[in-house]
């Protein structure tokens, strides 16, 4: 856009961006910095990024022993992995049928998916809770996973993708002897990898970070997802032992941040596609 920017313009632009960056990243930097410091340095009003006396080992050890941090992370992996896997199993066949097959009721079903896109996740919370209560599944992995098996976003995204696959490919496959399910598995899925990754990013970020639902259905510490575990930890510490607390938040935040840094393009694609819609 700004092909003829002056030198001053360049400097100004970067100055503003870097100043903003300092503010945006300050919480992360300070979180890491604090997680390395002993209490007396944390409570001093002198600003310094690196500690005089390193207390990283103590803080992180304490974080891992006070609460089952690894357990929280594992729960996060089980829950987000379980949700995404089941979402794929449910969404992909439906998305394929909506995109490529002709059947009565297709338009109605697609309208339902569009309506599903509009409903915020918190709206069905009370009846879902009642249902889980009635079948005795509160406070379980099932309670964390099952309610999110239907993903309107996933169906919508994959349908849009399948629509772009040429019909001839599907026709050739039918002549080659493949049934609809095999066309889905052998032809469509391998082609749909990029769209599935974008869907995966959105699904995993949404459910890894979800706090509202685990807070409602989980009582037992052992089943806490990372956000809920963070809260348990904070309450345990009564908000005073900041070193280990910050060490804990570093550990909880790290997986997604690392995932993001590793797969930036997919993240940004997925997010742009969805407007960050769960």
């Amino acid at each position: 856009m700004n092909r003829r920017g002056t030198l001053l313009g360049h400097i100004l632009r970067h100055a503003v961006l870097i100043f903003g960056l300092v503010i945006m990243l300050a919480p992360f930097v300070w979180m890491i910095s604090t997680s390395l410091k002993p209490p007396n340095e944390i409570f001093s009003t002198k600003l310094s990024l690196l500690p005089n006396n390193w207390a990283a080992a103590e803080n992180y050890t304490k974080a891992f022993t006070k609460v089952p941090l690894l357990r929280y992370l594992l729960n996060g992996v089980i829950v987000t992995g379980g949700i995404f896997l089941l979402q794929l199993i449910v969404s992909l066949p439906c998305a394929y049928a909506l995109a490529k097959l002709r059947f009565k009721g297709r338009d109605i079903l697609f309208t339902m998916v569009l309506i599903g896109l509009m409903i915020p996740a918190q709206a069905p919370a009370i009846p879902r809770y009642v249902m889980l209560y009635e079948v005795g599944l509160l406070d379980s992995y099932a309670a964390l996973i099952v309610p999110f098996v239907f993903s309107a976003f996933g169906i919508f995204l994959m349908r849009q993708f399948f629509k772009t696959v040429p019909d001839d490919l599907m026709h050739a496959a039918r002549l080659d002897g493949l049934g609809e399910f095999e066309i889905l598995c052998r032809i469509m899925l391998p082609l749909a990898m990029p769209a599935m990754l974008a869907f995966g990013v959105i699904s995993i970020v949404t459910h890894w970070n979800d706090f509202f639902w685990p807070l409602i259905v989980i009582q037992t510490g052992d089943l806490a997802t990372p956000p809920l575990g963070t809260l348990f930890f904070r309450n345990e510490e009564a908000g005073s032992d900041f070193g280990p607390l910050m060490a804990g938040t570093v550990v909880i935040t790290a997986p997604l941040v690392l995932l993001f840094l590793a797969a930036q393009r997919r993240f940004i694609e997925g997010v742009t596609l969805s407007g960050m819609k769960g």
């Binding site: 040429p166 001839d168 490919l169 050739a172 496959a173």
Partner: peptide
């Protein structure tokens, strides 16, 4: 058997 204008080869 059919041969398509677009060839319809499976890209993967």
């Amino acid at each position: 058997a059919m041969v398509f204008q677009s060839y319809a080869l499976y890209p993967h």
